[in-house]
Amino acid sequence: MNADITLTVDGRERSLTVDPRTTLLDALREHLGVTSPKKGCDHGQCGSCTVLLDGRRTLICLALAVAHDGAVVVTADGLGRGDELHPVAEAFLDADAYQCGYCTPGQICSAVGVLDEAADGWPSAVTPDLAADEVVLDRHEIAERMSGNLCRCGAYAHIVDAVSAVGNGAVR
């Protein structure tokens, strides 16, 4: 039984009819022609489909579209303002933090999420003091927090450079 849903994707309201089986990722890629989020594994094991879903970094290959009627989706294509790239995207260009580019939109959405989460004081598995209110995003912290985004080209060292360059809580 198909369902009618409405999504706000990169600032645009989009209405569509979906099969209950359709994931949010397939809804974007196959129904709306929004191909910025990528399909790398389709099982939550690679991070390529990361977007900001209602403000949080999320793997939308594991999200059913019918369960997210009314959601606000921001992809890597919707992060910037107008023609201006988001500072994280700029940092990826500066650091050459990508090669084939397939995991890149997911990496960038994830990095934006990391910066938000750090600004909110969320610890990670490598945070030395769990009780601390402030997070210092050193390389170790960034690498741990970005580990849900696999990159087969092996751009990790440059990805950490890029996220470091944007800085600790500099972007909200």
Partner: peptide
Amino acid sequence: RRRTEGPAKVTGTARYAAEYA
């Protein structure tokens, strides 16, 4: 030199095989 296709890749607008309309 920066990659020519860099802006398309960081926004996800560079099209890969399955993504053609």
